[in-house]
């Protein structure tokens, strides 16, 4: 199957210091990838590179086979939800409308999508709430809804459960697990090894800015293991 996104020989540096190097990484559609690694291993950098927010010093990123010529257009295929997301001032509905309006989606379809995505994240009827009056967990979920409403091909989540209290964690995780059903490929970063095993179809491990095992390698290893 054609990968959602493939990275080739990506090198990211900041000033003189090395940040990230990825030889080859192709993400298959409809899977959940868990991105693990210690603090400073480059998880957020890799997510930002894939979100086309941090430019790579070298290398190419291709979405569904297209080279990234027009960054603004390519960026509409992928959305990143940051660890502590920013909500625009105003109401929840304004936040969800923003990306939809940029895509030229008409108002009927917009309000329909907003209603269903808010329900999906457990925030039914939150449309008219003011963003600044929300709790940390609610902000996290509004940000997720804001991303989901756009129906991105690739959804990137930076430590999505870091600000979620333990009582809502289960609901949040089952929501993430359902995303591939809607045709969304997910990459989320996490510190929690059990979470990466629990949720991830594949685990990507970063160490000092290098990808330890690309999914393809893992598949190969498994094949060797079983002698196929």
């Amino acid at each position: 199957m054609q990968p959602v996104v493939s990275l080739n020989n990506i090198l990211v540096t900041r000033g003189d210091s090395f940040k990230l190097s990825v030889g080859r990484l192709a993400l298959q559609p409809g899977l959940i990838y868990a991105l693990t690694g210690a603090n400073g291993s480059g998880k957020s950098t890799l997510l930002r590179v894939m979100a086309l927010l941090t430019p790579a010093f070298e290398g190419t990123i291709e979405f569904s086979g297209n080279k990234t010529n027009n960054p603004a257009q390519q960026r509409q295929k992928v959305t990143l939800v940051e660890q502590s997301p920013y909500l625009f001032k105003g109401k929840v509905i304004d936040n969800l409308n923003y990306g939809l309006k940029l895509r030229g989606i008409d108002s009927n379809e917009r309000s329909r999508r907003i209603k269903t995505t808010l329900a999906n994240v457990g925030l039914e009827g939150f449309e008219q709430r003011q963003a600044k009056e929300l709790s940390g967990g609610e902000i996290q979920r509004v940000a997720l809804a804001r991303a989901l409403a756009l129906k991105p091909e690739l959804l990137l989540l930076d430590e999505p459960t870091a600000n979620i209290d333990s009582s809502s964690l289960q609901g949040y995780e089952s929501l993430l697990r359902d995303l591939p059903k809607y045709g969304v490929t997910v990459v989320f970063s996490t510190h929690d090894p059990s979470q990466s095993q629990r949720l991830g179809d594949q685990v990507l491990r970063l160490e000092n800015g290098r990808l330890l095992s690309s999914p393809q390698q893992r598949l190969d290893e498994r094949r060797n293991l079983y002698g196929t």
Binding site: A51, L52, L53, A72, R75, T79, P85, F88
Partner: peptide, 18 residues
């Protein structure tokens, strides 16, 4: 201003100008 504003707008599909 909050440093996240620009990146938030970009990742939701805005151009640099938007």
């Amino acid at each position: 201003a909050d440093q996240r504003i620009i990146n938030t707008a970009l990742t939701l599909g805005a151009s640099r100008f938007q």
